[in-house]
Amino acid sequence: MSTRAPRRTQHERRVATRARILDCAVACLLERGYAATTISEVQERAGLARGTVQHHFPSKQDLVVDATAHVVEARLARFEHEARLVPPDRRPFEAFVDLAWRDLNSPAFFAALELWVAARTDTQLRDRLVAEERRLFERMRSVYASVLGDPYATDPRTPTVVEFTIDVLTGLSMTTMLTGNLGEREAALRRWTYAVALMYGEIAPDDLLAGPRISTSAG
């Protein structure tokens, strides 16, 4: 009895080739930056003929525009995996801030950052990126709420807290990327965790400076 796997269809081969090209494009964005992400570089990484790559993506713009969705899917997959690994007894504010930081310090985030910079002067890329980022954050918001748990998941302050956290930690990630100052990063993460507790009224304003052990009804 033959155990040989069935041959893939033409559609399956096409999908696999396309995914391979996009994987290589994202890796190139991360390792070498937007300017060095060329059809030739991606072709070499993928081990494919130039004609094959250009059959799927005739130009660099076609490639990077489609890479935006690929980056978002990679980022979501990692994010949701990390969320599933949060220990059930972890203090909710600490778990929430830690999960946000892991996402905003991940390879997929830094690949997205390269696309953000390029999108400043590329209308087509910007339009696609805005749509993909909207899809990304819609999924992330629901995961963040589940990590915070009750009563915070349904608290009317939660959308604002999530938005502030993403904005603050995005800036922190970019600063750390440039300075490499891990000590300041850890201190800033602790302070923001206390700030989140303060926004929910779980600690007093004076406690924000003292850095107390956070005690919450959900933790």
Rank of each mutant, 00 (worst) to 15 (best):
A119Q: 00
S59P: 01
E12Q: 15
L104A: 00
I21T: 03
T176D: 06
H55Q: 11
L136I: 01
T216K: 08
V53F: 06
F109N: 02
D127Q: 15
L178M: 12
T68C: 14
L85F: 04
F96C: 03
A69E: 14
H11P: 03
V15C: 01
Q124M: 12
R120D: 06
L125S: 03
L178P: 00
C24I: 04
W101Q: 02
A218F: 02
F137I: 00
R50F: 04
E186W: 07
R213D: 13
R190E: 09
R126A: 14
M177V: 08
R190H: 11
S2Q: 10
V196R: 03
L125A: 05
D89Y: 07
D89R: 13
H81C: 08
T176Q: 12
G51P: 02
G149K: 12
A19S: 13
V71M: 11
D89N: 13
N181K: 10
V72Q: 08
A83D: 09
L29N: 01
G51Y: 05
L209H: 07
D155A: 10
D167I: 02
A95R: 01
P87E: 09
A67R: 03
W192S: 00
I39Y: 09
V71Q: 03
L30I: 07
E184N: 03
A49G: 12
S106T: 12
P212V: 05
A95Y: 05
A119Y: 02
P151T: 10
R7G: 13
V15P: 00
T52A: 06
V130H: 01
V72R: 11
A188L: 14
Y34P: 03
Y34E: 10
S146G: 04
V117F: 13
A19T: 15
P6H: 12
A69Q: 09
D66F: 04
A204C: 08
V53N: 01
E132I: 12
R139N: 09
T193Y: 00
A112Y: 05
R185P: 02
A131C: 06
T121V: 11
Q10Y: 13
V147K: 01
L63Q: 01
L29P: 02
E138Y: 11
G149E: 08
G171R: 07
H70V: 04
A153M: 05
R134Y: 09
L48P: 02
D23Y: 12
F96H: 06
I21N: 04
V64H: 03
A118M: 12
R20H: 12
T216H: 05
V53H: 02
V65R: 00
E80V: 11
M1A: 14
A153D: 13
Q43F: 02
V196A: 09
T158M: 06
Y34C: 05
D23P: 05
